[in-house]
Lab assay of single mutants.
Amino acid sequence: MQAFVKTLTGKTITLEVEPSDTIENVKAKIQDKEGIPPDQQRLIFAGKQLEDGRTLSDYNIQKESTLHLVLR
């Protein structure tokens, strides 16, 4: 499924993900596309910070959801 990641600069990245993907996995995909190390990434969805060990389905993130990427 497709999900979108919006950065603070307003850029939107499109990712191909599965509901079973972990947040860690998603961060690795963002690193592949953008070169941002996962340890600098914080992903926010519905106002919550997403934890590495959880999956997209844990957070009820469905296709075409938009996550927000904040860098630390």
Rank of each mutant, 00 (worst) to 15 (best):
M1N: 04
M1K: 04
Q2P: 10
Q2T: 15
Q2Y: 14
F4R: 07
F4P: 02
V5Y: 02
V5Q: 01
V5E: 02
K6F: 06
T7D: 07
T7S: 06
L8F: 13
T9A: 12
T9Q: 13
G10M: 03
G10R: 03
K11T: 08
K11S: 08
T12A: 04
T12E: 06
T12K: 06
I13D: 01
T14Y: 10
T14A: 09
L15R: 00
L15N: 00
E16C: 14
E16W: 15
E16N: 12
E18G: 07
P19K: 07
P19V: 08
P19Q: 07
S20L: 09
D21M: 12
D21T: 10
D21R: 01
D21C: 06
T22L: 11
T22G: 03
I23D: 00
I23L: 04
I23G: 02
E24D: 07
V26L: 10
K27N: 00
K27G: 01
K27T: 02
A28Q: 13
K29C: 03
K29A: 06
Q31Y: 15
Q31C: 11
E34F: 10
E34G: 06
E34K: 05
G35N: 07
I36K: 02
I36C: 04
I36W: 14
P38M: 15
P38Q: 13
D39C: 12
D39E: 14
D39A: 13
D39W: 14
Q40T: 08
Q41P: 01
Q41V: 09
L43N: 00
L43E: 00
L43C: 01
F45I: 04
A46F: 09
A46K: 15
A46L: 12
G47C: 07
G47L: 03
Q49G: 06
L50W: 02
L50P: 01
L50A: 02
L50K: 00
L50C: 04
E51H: 09
E51A: 08
E51W: 06
D52C: 05
R54Y: 13
T55K: 11
T55Q: 07
T55M: 10
T55R: 11
L56E: 00
S57M: 11
S57Y: 09
D58L: 03
Y59D: 01
Y59W: 02
N60L: 08
N60E: 08
I61Y: 05
I61W: 06
I61R: 02
K63D: 15
E64D: 15
E64L: 09
E64R: 07
S65V: 13
S65K: 06
T66F: 08
T66M: 09
L67V: 07
L67A: 02
H68A: 06
H68Q: 10
H68M: 12
L69Y: 01
L71D: 07
L71G: 07
L71W: 08
R72D: 12
